[in-house]
Design a protein around this nucleic acid. Sequence first.
DNA 1: TCTAACGTTGACGTCAACGTTAATATGATG
DNA 2: CATCATATTAACGTTGACGTCAACGTTAGA
Lengths: 144, 144
Amino acid sequence: MFKIDEVAKETGLTKRTIRYYEEIGLMPTPERSDGGTRLYTQEHIHHLQRVISARDVLGFSLQEIQDYMLYAQELTGHRELYPQLRDPKQQLTKLREMDQALEAQLRTLDEKASKILAMKQELEQFRERVTTGITRLETEEKES
Amino acid sequence: MFKIDEVAKETGLTKRTIRYYEEIGLMPTPERSDGGTRLYTQEHIHHLQRVISARDVLGFSLQEIQDYMLYAQELTGHRELYPQLRDPKQQLTKLREMDQALEAQLRTLDEKASKILAMKQELEQFRERVTTGITRLETEEKES
DNA sequence: TCTAACGTTGACGTCAACGTTAATATGATG
DNA sequence: CATCATATTAACGTTGACGTCAACGTTAGA
């Protein structure tokens, strides 16, 4: 069980940000001590690290990340979905919704990946020109 | 020569955003008519499209995009860099700086690409589980 | 040339994503 | 058990990235 300062050091987030993420529902609410101090588990830390990854690396808004995490949680940790809690018709509808959403998210990821590739190629071209420029200047320097 | 509304329609940005990007130095200042109306070229549109790409797809801050665009401009459009405007020593120093910066940017891009891949794989796993769930429910439905 | 449609510059408004401060309670340690 | 580092909530402040509105000038077409 970790207190918030420990979690902050593990994740690199500030304590404020951690509480904020809980506030907006981006994180499962941790347990509390008798006095009210938040007590986090390793799971919480993992969760936060994935949130950070999605936020920093992909530039998703916290809202988008929340949508993504929703599915992730339903399918991994708490699988209260698969055991038929309800009418199978409703199950089917929900699963189809999830399928649609997942497909959409995969498409945006593909888009991003291809654009990243394009930027990479551009930067690599730039870099080639720079390195040839450097070597040219270096040889000129030696010749003088 | 395009006026701002045309550029807005081409790029999907609002006029406000276009002026804002100019204001913060994210775009080369366009020419003006005698009356003061901004007159854009095709180049400006291309530039904006690349900015949009970097912003939307990578979630860079406008400041980061500005840094990126700085090098891009120095190396493509206005190649006032290569003709030795100055002392070759200074040239060399500058080129080395650029090389460092480009390398760093390439590293961050690689990082992003690999994280995107990881997310993709996760989502694909989720999707498999969902689709198997769907087919199972569908066959159960037919059997009843 | 007149006018409707579009352009320009302030200036203030807004929303997300936190930072900061204050006032107060909690928890570990000698 | 005293105390000092941490914790909590509540509230307001800030920054980036624009939206919106007002007051006014410009342009193009009838």
